[in-house]
């Protein structure tokens, strides 16, 4: 009985993520609307959108092959896999083993690979453009992300995400990790100042333009995967600064976590409202800056643990 209970506790955060992820996109949008002096769309808009898309037919370009049809499922499945590793409960995660973070990061890379290939499969110059930009930013985002995970690994002397963030990590390291992760979040989730999810201009977008030719259920899957990715990064950011075990039960813990995630999303909305978008070379510089912050966190962690 206790065993089932533990499993339930470990799986609960994953379920929360799977259910609540589209909601936080609504939070970002409402924040932006507030700053623009509008009411904004309903908080549940993305659920409606996904639901609508799932009931629609689809259009497939004749230029495309099975790669294009496979990609949305692959990117959704790999995002879910990564989420399973990064959805942390106080004592564990849905999936946890030494080195699981490597799998999670590579799962996200797989999602990227699938999206980039499906973009190239359409043979459209717009989508090629988005793919090329995605590939340009990925190495730096991934490096920054890996370094900050290393910092956590060193500080906690552990090799799995679940134990890593639960351990006592010194506060400066946590703060540096949070800032760095937040930058990576902005870039990886196509938010201003790295990308602009609202200006529907083919020539300037990154993520949105790669799915220009997707429609119907495929597009629904892509939207859902995108919201899961935002949830993943936001929840990690929360784990960076919020020590585990503030409340007793899993429910309380999760409620606190969700509140934290909503705060992160509001922060994203605020950043989007007060900043213009960067030039691409500056986005890259911003990622290098994030890597520097992560490295700093790592240095401190190494110093503390030595």
């Amino acid at each position: 009985m206790a065993d089932t209970n533990t499993i339930a506790v470990d799986v609960f955060p994953l379920l929360c993520g799977l259910v609540l992820a589209p909601f936080i996109i609504g939070v970002v949008n409402r924040t932006k609307a507030f700053f623009a002096g509008r009411n904004g769309q309903p908080l549940l808009q993305l659920y409606f959108d996904i639901f609508k898309l799932l009931r629609k037919g689809a259009v497939f370009s004749r230029s495309t092959t099975w790669v294009f049809r496979l990609a949305p499922a692959v990117s959704l499945a790999s995002t879910v896999s990564a989420l399973a590793i990064f959805s942390l409960s106080p004592e564990g995660a849905a999936l946890s083993f030494p080195g699981d973070i490597v799998l999670a990061v590579y799962m996200l890379a797989l999602a990227r690979f699938a999206t980039v290939l499906s973009a190239l499969d359409t043979g459209s110059s717009f989508e090629g453009m988005g793919a090329s930009r995605e590939v340009m930013l990925a190495p730096f985002a991934e490096a920054a992300f890996f370094i900050l995970i290393l910092a956590a690994a060193v500080a906690s002397r552990s090799m799995s995400a679940a134990t890593m963030f639960a351990a006592a990590i010194p506060l400066p390291v946590r703060i540096l990790m949070f800032v760095s992760l937040f930058i990576v979040l902005l870039v990886e989730n196509c938010r201003v100042p790295a990308d602009d999810p609202n200006t529907h201009l083919e020539l300037t977008m990154i993520h949105e333009v790669m799915v220009l030719d997707n429609s119907g259920p495929d597009l629904g899957m892509i939207f859902y995967a995108a919201s899961l990715k935002l949830w993943l990064f936001a929840s990690l950011a929360v784990c960076c600064i919020m020590p585990a075990g503030l409340t007793g039960g899993i429910i309380g813990e999760m409620a606190l976590r969700v509140a934290g995630i909503i705060c992160v999303c509001i922060l994203v909305g605020v950043v989007e409202s007060v900043m213009a978008r960067f030039r691409f070379d500056k986005v890259r510089r911003m990622l290098v800056f994030a890597s520097v912050l992560s490295s700093l966190a790592l240095l401190i962690a190494v110093g503390v643990s030595a």
């Binding site: 623009a36 409202s273 007060v274």
Partner: peptide, 9 residues
């Protein structure tokens, strides 16, 4: 186009 929200809206 510069994604500067306040002025735009």
């Amino acid at each position: 186009d510069a994604a500067f929200l306040p002025t735009a809206s």
